[in-house]
Design a protein around this nucleic acid. Structure first.
Length: 692
RNA sequence: GCACCCGUAGCUCAGUUGGAUAGAGCGUUUGACUACGAAUCAAAAGGCCGAAGGUUCGAGUCCUUCCGGGUGCACCA
């Protein structure tokens, strides 16, 4: 390696160059720069890095001294400072005063490989790091998961992977509302519509076929209950008399220790397992499943005390909220119909959803001393243990991990809950000012809706009003939605057909594995390519596509790169790595011959591919700080696209390249790109199959 | 009424914390497979970035107003 140790990756190099600019600005112009941007020029010909800092300096100098200086002249002075860095080959002053830096391509190329292996070797997250709590999925355990739920889970899981890729310590929660209205409704269905006992439901469950499992059964049953409440007319209002069944059932669930609660527990637990099965197909797992029943029984009273002590809530003795414990929401306007205060405990003594949420959030942040009892829920095939909470002390495992006590909390919840989430954040801050609002983040996202065409494909009869709209909302009550398992099945079947056609000779097991990887790639990419606050209008044709901006496109680029290495003689990659490293270390002619490969139009193209691939750590960092996984998805696609462009050039055909140095560079670059691409895809939860 | 989100190519969307000539995919038209894999690539066409002001050396990006769409503002969960 080089005799001088300089930055190993681009962001470190960039930071050290920025430091040089900062120092030079202070020394030469007496200006202290705080934050100033460094950017990637729009085209490689313009350089690898640009500092549009001369404009800012000209302004600051004028402010300080009244002296008017030309930005170009300022840039010229900074130019020399930057050129003295060994990693910088040259600097150009462009346009009105841009400082454009060109890296020493031979040197940087050699430095990149070592930084990559370090960056992609799944940075171990040390125990003493602050813990990031991510809650996602949290699907009501009363029916099969649909595509809208998948957006939540994939978003949450991808964010978890991004945090981990940044070396963060993460704990993943999937909150289980096992005593809520939605579970109660399905119980009403079993008990009152079908006259079933727990034993009957168990027997039914055991008798159901694979293509119509329990969660699908409940999906339909739930829709029937919705219809039942409306007296059989989907457009009618809910009948208060029939709704009494719901209230009674809900009451029994909260009470516990009765047949209705037992039935509910069976339904909820059974469906949680099915949800976990569904999510596991996409590579999604959890550390802890906190259940509402335990939040109510164990956590609430302690959290309630803290809320009262801290003055975050107070008892209302008059007005509309008389008899309630409320939290004032300052800055939120009240009106005739809307009180500015938020009710936490109702006048009948029951707790609102928001109240429970604040309690749970306080626990996540280590602000409630009490701990739950934990027991193992199940172990995934890869050995990952999933835990849950329990009210039964006897069941409690003594070797449970230390859950809770996180430094920050990210809740993946759709944007309609922005206001309740705001209340939770403020509530936590009111109870625990030292934690404040900054510890709570709402990862809000827009929902998945259906095109009218997609809704009709699902067999729904649309009203003329709905047909004229651009989209139709999914509705559990109407039983309208694209079931997650159905959709994954379709994706896998389509992919299997394609693989079958291309590689009829490979073993069936490999075909199925490839089809699965492609289905996951298509689905996860499809759900991740949009920014969080963009509504996904689900269209079958688009969601099933594997062409263009899609997961399989990215996988295909990696597969093609890998297949080159299958055909390369043993040891050629290692030789290429040695050659690049030694040429950079020795300099002189050896380095010159490497530089020559990067000259000209094609050289620029190859170099731009290298710098794009090298940007992965920055993209990961940015995706984490903006909490926006779609940035990573977009980047991954761009990298795949850039590789395909490189790959399709006749001049870049590695196996036919005769020039030893050029061939070594091509091998080295291709290896670097496939490593970064594979790493980016892995962070998106997408695997690269051997063949596809 | 109040708060938040969105308005960019025919369609669906990006646009890197204010930077250089606003980009992709789909769709349309044309071309490239006895292959380092065509789930690919090349090329063409397509734009008053909702409107009007303002701040700035510089605005799709920031501020104000307006227009048009979405979502919240429960003692529901």
């Amino acid at each position: 390696m080089s005799e001088e140790t300089y930055a190993l990756n681009l962001s470190e190099l960039q930071e050290s160059l920025r430091e040089r600019v900062r120092a030079a600005a202070a020394e030469k112009f007496g200006v202290e720069l705080e934050q100033f941007p460094a950017e990637v020029p729009p085209r490689t010909e313009l350089g690898d890095l640009a500092f549009p800092v001369a404009f800012e300096l000209a302004k600051r100098i004028k402010q300080a001294t009244g002296e008017k200086r030309n930005p170009r002249a300022i840039a010229e002075e900074l130019k020399q400072v930057l050129e003295s860095d060994a990693a910088v080959a040259r600097v150009e002053v462009a346009g009105a005063g841009y400082l454009n830096l060109f890296y020493d391509r031979a040197r940087l190329l050699a430095a990149l490989s070592s930084s990559t292996t370090e960056a992609t070797a799944a940075a171990p997250s040390s125990e003493d790091r602050p813990k990031r709590m991510v809650e996602h999925t949290s699907v009501n355990p009363n029916k099969a998961a649909h595509i809208g739920h998948l957006r939540n889970s994939v978003l949450g899981d991808t964010f978890v992977r991004i945090l981990r890729a940044n070396g963060e310590r993460v704990e993943v929660h999937n909150y289980i509302d096992n005593t809520g209205v939605q579970v109660a409704d399905v119980v009403v269905g079993f008990q009152h519509l079908e006259g079933m006992s727990l034993a009957d439901v168990r027997a039914l469950d055991a008798s159901l076929k694979e293509d119509y499992p329990f969660d699908y059964y409940c999906w339909d049953l739930y829709a029937r209950v919705g219809l039942f409440y409306r007296g059989g007319d989907p457009d009618a209002k809910e009948d208060p008399e029939r709704l009494k069944l719901r209230v009674e059932t809900l009451h029994a669930l909260e009470e516990g220790g009765n047949a209705t609660a037992e039935l509910a527990d069976y339904v909820a637990t059974r469906i949680v397992h099915q949800h976990l099965d569904t999510m596991r197909r996409l590579g999604i797992t959890y550390d802890l499943l906190p259940r509402e029943s335990e939040v109510l029984h164990f956590l609430w009273s302690h959290a309630f005390e803290r809320m009262k002590e801290s003055g975050a809530i107070h008892f209302q003795t008059e007005g509309k909220n008389r008899g309630c414990w409320v939290m004032p929401m300052e800055g939120h306007e009240g009106s005739e119909e809307h009180e500015p205060d938020k009710v936490i405990v109702r006048s009948n003594g029951t707790i609102t959803y928001t109240g429970k949420d604040i309690a749970y959030q306080l626990w996540k942040l280590g602000q409630v001393d009490l701990n739950f009892y934990f027991k193992p829920f199940r172990t995934e095939p890869d050995g990952h243990a999933v835990w849950t909470t329990t009210s039964n002390k006897e069941e409690a495992a003594s070797d449970a991990p230390h859950f809770g006590a996180g430094a920050t909390v990210y809740n993946v919840i759709d944007s309609r809950q922005s206001y309740p989430q705001e209340v939770v954040k403020r509530g936590v801050a009111a109870v625990a000012p030292q934690v404040g609002e900054a510890a709570s983040a709402h990862l809000s996202y827009e929902r998945v809706v259906l095109t009218p065409a997609a809704a009709e494909e699902l067999g729904l009869e649309l009203s003329t009003e709905e047909k004229s709209r651009t989209f139709v909302e999914m509705s559990g009550r109407r039983g309208l939605g694209v079931k997650a398992d159905d959709f994954i099945d379709t994706l896998e079947a389509n992919a299997l057909r394609e693989v079958e056609g291309r590689h009829p000779d490979i073993p069936d097991e490999e075909k199925r594995a490839a089809a699965h990887a492609l289905a996951v790639g298509a689905l996860r990419y499809f759900l991740m390519k949009w920014t969080r606050n963009s509504v996904i209008v689900f269209d079958f044709k688009e969601a099933l596509s594997t062409k263009g901006e899609a997961g399989p496109y990215c996988q295909y680029a990696a597969v093609r790169a890998n297949s080159i290495f299958r055909k390369l003689p043993n040891g050629e990659l290692e030789n290429a790595q040695r050659l690049i490293a030694s040429s950079a270390a020795e300099g002189g002619e050896a380095a010159e011959s490497v530089r020559k490969v990067f000259e000209g139009e094609i050289g620029d193209e190859i170099w731009s591919l290298v710098t794009l691939a090298a940007r992965l750590p920055q993209v990961l960092q940015q995706s984490a700080s903006f909490a926006e996984p779609s940035h990573l998805a977009k980047y991954t696609f761009q990298l795949a696209q850039a590789f395909n462009f490189f790959y399709n050039r006749d001049e870049n055909r590695i196996l036919e390249e005769r020039d030893a140095v050029r061939r070594a560079v091509l091998v080295y670059v291709t290896d670097f790109v496939r490593t970064q691409l594979t790493s980016a895809l892995a962070t998106l939860g997408i695997e690269v199959p051997e063949r596809m």
